[in-house]
Amino acid sequence: MSQKEQTEKEPLFSPKNIRLLTNPLDDDNPITVLVLGICSALAVTVMLKPAVVMTLSVVCVMGLANLIVSLLRETIPPRIRIIVQLVVIASLVILVDQVLKAFLYDVSRQLSVFVGLIITNCIIMGRLEAFALYNKPWPSFLDGVGNAAGYGIILIIVAFLRELLGSGTVYGYPVIEYLGLYEIGYVDNGFMILPPMALITVGVIIWVQRARNQKLIESN
């Protein structure tokens, strides 16, 4: 690669842009710090597989929605900007839903209404309003992907814990059975399958994160 190409490419992943991508994973995490998008985090985290597909779906929808709205940002009439954002999100969600139905039918049956409910995921609207409307397409795209990944990482951690403790499997593989824990009297905790335990798990994650990252603790 020549020197010139490197200098041209460099700004794409400048430190500022990288931060857009990585901040939402920890310091600005949409679920644990902003506490947005909790509803679907409760619903799709019983098993790991739907959580992973949900994460990928949200990454696609959010990255593209931020990109499209950012490209249109000069033309969108301010008075109908919310409607425009909703139309963009809704169209992308319908596309994702249709693609899942065509190529990942089993998972789409498990996710059922929750793919459709990505439309109402407040993280997406929030990022469009707060970021994409005022920033260039590339940073907006990174911001969308970063926030969706921040949402997804929590989803996957919660789903991993709930599937392991609640059903004794990881991504469908019966780990506990392989380890032979059932024979010495271990019993799956059916409680982990119920939605309230997702909330408690998220709470524990928030606790761990704040214990580790003192910046996040509000000063009264």
Binding site: R79, V84, V87, S91, L95, Q98, V99, K101, A102, F103
Partner: peptide
């Protein structure tokens, strides 16, 4: 505003119809 909204709706409708027609056999 009126033209913008109409144009947007027409484009979205076209995109979604095409996707629906293309994916229907698989579904």
């Amino acid at each position: 505003i009126f033209l913008y909204a109409s144009g947007m709706v027409i484009i979205v409708a076209a995109v979604l119809s095409v996707a629906s027609i293309l994916l229907r056999p698989y579904q």
